[in-house]
Amino acid sequence: MLGEGIIKGLAETGRNFLGSYFEPDRLVTVQYPEERLPAPEAARTFPFLVYDGDDWQKGLRCVACQICEKECPPQCIYIVKDITKKPDYIGKLQFQPKVFDIDLSVCMSCQICVEVCPFDAIKMDVEFELSTTDRFGRLLLHKAELAKPNEYYHKIHPAEAAEVDARLAAEKAKALAKTQADAAGKSVSPKPALKPPAPASG
């Protein structure tokens, strides 16, 4: 009969209306500034620079090789190499970036810089509340704002950071063994030094 469907529909919406007051599960809205959903492990927004230890200027893993700058599809990274070499995390003398800028208004969060970085120096952040009233100044991040400690990286991407740390520790041990072997003379063959992953350190 005509109108049957309308009555059924009205009953359904009426049930929804009343149900939303008595069954909190129905309301799926997360009231954002007060409530937040935890970010998934794979969440990523914009890149940041990882440093080891306490001093961000000394501990910066970046060696200003400029691969990321060249690979960046929208060309949002700007790097100026330093003139003097400083020891990196292995103890090897390396260049450091004098200037390292990322323009967030240009960056497209593709993660290519992270993938090409041979030093695990640049990683993706999860910070997304970056709105500002100054669209030119505040969206161009400099080295000081980009540098974040390794502990922060562990906090936002625990599994990934642990894997990176293990790899870096292994590399460091290998390099150490190699230098020791070199120092001891060419007669002793270098042992494959595969130590358990050491805690994050400079």
Binding site: T13, N16, F17, G19, S20, Y21, R26, L27, V28, T29, Q31
Partner: peptide, 10 residues
């Protein structure tokens, strides 16, 4: 408000 509640929103 009413339409929101009907659609299970606030």
């Amino acid at each position: 408000k009413g339409l929101g509640r009907i659609q299970n929103r606030y």
